[in-house]
Design a protein around this nucleic acid. Structure first.
Lengths: 209, 209
DNA sequence: CTTTGCATTAACAAAATTGTTAAACAATAT
DNA sequence: ATATTGTTTAACAATTTTGTTAATGCAAAG
């Protein structure tokens, strides 16, 4: 009945179940017993491998924050022009959040409720993926400005605009579709059309005069 | 020692304390005993006046959702042109969220975690403030398009863009300031400059070709 | 085969959390 | 004064939730 080398790797099972729980109901709503049940183990195992709820959450949070920003540095490092990089960045970012629709709200909410968390786990870290991404983004933007490829703009403002337009509609989706403004499938169509509009919009705002 | 007509109005005290608690830690993180303590009453009073945590939360949620959208209908109803209305709407909206910085995340998060809530409390309601706002916004936008005042655009997309640019930076503030990208007061300066940029940005996108 | 060390479980413990209730209290009307 | 009504409290109850621990299982090393 038993498979050959199929040992379950309990730690990985717990992490997977914890990701699901924390992303779906947040830290405060998450239940250790729920995670244990979904991982198929006793909840004592969670404490055996991860000591406490706080600690388990920190592991998941760090992992997710890294995954979110780490994805986009390769695009900024590629050797095409800035005006080519931006649409690729926008598309990659939108694809990512579409495939991981709960991650933005998770990161924003938990950071807002517990700012100390991100300070302790990421800030000061030499490999802080968020800072790495932003510093690269800032460098590339300033270079493009120097080369007169784009007009003068604050890099942080540009990044905020891109993230705003990509992420916010996703955050608002439950509100919009449940309030009776429009049906669910119509919203998805709108989102698809929108992805191209956003690129056009941003590029237009970057062109010199 | 006792004031003349200064009866405490316990119900109002509870509502105030509940608003603070729910807005600051969310539904799942909120504690009835905390609310009671901050209202200066026994927690039995919360159940006396509001039956259950769910019910108390529903009262607060409904009130906040109404306040958020109810504020902006007067601007849309004023009799100036659409291109004059939009910057006023953007400014009013930004002022509102700046004064109530926790409301957007509260509404977005709780709606996302419990979509049934907004369906049950608002949808189908004749006085649903969100639907009222959007229907008015849609009507005015379409009218402006018919009159060739602005180019053809999906009203929902326009609303999403405005809300995105106004709200998202606020949501991201804790993340940005705590990750070490830039100090807190610099961020506030950026936000002030940004409010004018957003109007210009939107208006530019609305003008005919 | 036995020992050793890690993994796992079941039961327990402690604290927190929501909700209830009977009794006390206060204001007003009778 | 007394009764009535709605308000408030303190104590309790039930459940949930996180965390601990002693006993057991199991696989590999000796």
């Amino acid at each position: 009945m038993k498979q050959k080398s199929e040992k379950p790797d309990v730690k990985a099972l717990i992490i997977t179940a914890a990701e699901e729980e924390f992303l779906s109901v947040g830290y405060a709503g998450a239940r250790m017993m729920n995670i244990a049940k979904n991982a198929g183990v006793t909840h004592a195992m969670l404490h055996y491998y991860f000591r406490s709820k706080d600690n388990l959450f920190e592991v998941i949070f760090k992992e997710k924050a890294g995954a979110f920003f780490g994805n986009f540095t390769p695009i900024l490092e590629s050797d095409c022009s800035f005006l080519e990089k931006i649409p690729r960045l926008i598309k990659a970012h939108l694809d990512f959040v579409t495939k991981n629709p709960r991650m933005p709200l998770f990161l924003l909410y938990e950071t807002s409720k517990n700012p100390g968390l991100i300070r302790d786990t990421l800030s000061g870290n030499k490999h802080n993926p968020i800072a790495i991404f932003y510093q690269l983004f800032e460098k590339e933007t300033k270079k493009a400005i120097r080369k007169k490829e784009i007009k003068k703009i604050d890099p942080l403002e540009l990044m905020l605009t891109i993230f705003s337009l990509n992420i916010f509609p996703l955050l608002a989706q439950p509100l919009i579709t449940n309030v009776g403004i429009l049906p669910d499938n119509t919203f998805r169509q709108l989102m698809k059309r929108r992805s191209q509009e956003v690129s056009k919009f941003i590029i237009a705002g970057l062109k010199n005069t």
